[in-house]
């Protein structure tokens, strides 16, 4: 029972990540807007398709240019999950450029605020501009309370993949790091046990990495529109998988046990050292679609709020423990194999 507690913890954490991650509803959001192109001085009536909204108390809608310029809608009506919003856009707009991106905000006490960032293009016909739209003070924006995941425009429900895709990479990295430590320890002590540990950890880390690639490409199909993109982080992780496949080939290509152990340990350490710049440094040199690169917002700010953290961190621990568990079974098989090889076992 002593060695079982962390396996039970692993199961509990993964089940927690599955149930809480899947069953927690999202906050309400906006699916799409038509028309999204408006021009100054006209009266527009917008059709806005909403997601996850319930009947509200009193709906208000605003067009936002920056934190100082809001335009209040003259009428907001919700029928059947669809908003009809009327805006009277003044002829004087606070912009020098002829095309200005605006953010649509719809707010209600019960539903919180629905945001469609920079989804509306405002075309100005006159060259006059005023400094500000704001006349009636800051609009009151409500926040929906409760344990809910944030709604992100393109991500939508796939924001839940955060708990099933990203932890795989974290656990892969932790497993590879542990594998490298075991390799270092092997080179120090020359005990074959540590090489078994290193290779088991590496193999289960590779499983995590391959799954990370597969889940990542499924997620990419849903959000970026293609299974494989030219994204730097994606290709770098593919390369790091190639390095570890080379490790596997090196191991299977060497016969002598001790020689295999030494060579693969040395290669493993070197490989991990090249992985570090691969994953962390190079994506910062080239652009990436991932959060935190190339102008995309990083984790931490709005993308990973406290409700998501409450599932995300346990999921990392859960998947890492799962990897260790799978590696441990492989390790035990290797130990038995070795014992049979040296005929140390009584049948």
């Amino acid at each position: 029972m002593k060695s079982l507690w962390w396996k039970c913890l692993c199961i509990a954490l993964l089940l927690y990540a599955l149930f809480v991650g899947m069953l927690t509803p999202l906050k309400p959001g906006i699916l799409n807007i038509s028309p999204f192109l408006v021009s100054s001085g006209e009266r527009v009536s917008m059709e806005v398709e909403a997601y996850n909204v319930e009947a509200g108390k009193e709906w208000q809608a605003y067009l936002k240019k920056d934190s100082l310029s809001y335009l209040k809608a003259s009428a907001v009506e919700l029928t059947n999950g669809k908003f009809k919003i009327d805006f009277e856009i003044p002829s004087h707009i606070p912009s020098e450029t002829s095309l200005q991106a605006l953010t649509l905000l719809i707010t209600d006490e019960r539903n919180g605020t629905l945001v469609y960032p920079e989804g509306i293009q405002l075309k100005s016909s006159t060259n006059e501009s005023t400094s500000s739209w704001l006349k009636e003070g800051h609009p009151r924006l409500y926040k929906k309370e409760g344990f809910l995941f944030p709604y992100r425009n393109i991500l939508r429900e796939t924001i839940r993949n955060m708990y099933y895709h990203v932890p795989l990479w974290f656990s892969m990295f932790i497993l590879f790091f542990a594998g490298m430590m075991c390799s270092i320890w092997y080179l120090k002590t020359k005990k074959i046990e540590y090489d078994h540990r290193a290779s088991s950890l590496i193999y289960s880390g590779m499983l995590m990495g391959v799954l990370g690639l597969i889940t990542g490409s499924l997620w990419a199909k849903a959000t970026w529109g293609a299974y494989w993109t030219n994204d730097m982080k994606l290709n770098m992780s593919a390369v790091s998988m190639l390095i570890y496949f080379a490790y596997a080939i090196l191991r299977s290509g060497t016969e002598d046990i001790e020689r295999k152990a030494t060579l693969s340990s040395a290669y493993n350490i070197f490989a991990f050292i090249t992985i570090v710049p691969l994953i962390f440094v190079l994506p910062r040199v080239a652009d990436s679609l991932h959060p935190g690169n190339g102008g995309n917002p990083a984790f931490g700010g709005e993308d990973l709020d406290n409700t998501m953290r409450a599932v995300f961190y346990p999921a990392i621990i859960g998947f890492t423990l799962m990897g260790v568990w799978l590696g441990q079974i492989l390790l035990r098989i290797k130990r038995i194999k070795e014992k049979i090889f040296f005929n140390k076992i009584d049948f």
């Binding site: 796939t158 839940r160 993949n161 997620w219």
Partner: peptide
Amino acid sequence: DGKLLSVVLVFASILIGF
């Protein structure tokens, strides 16, 4: 609309991998 299918596929692929 919500692309929940992608999440299910992701989890299923993890299970299949295991």
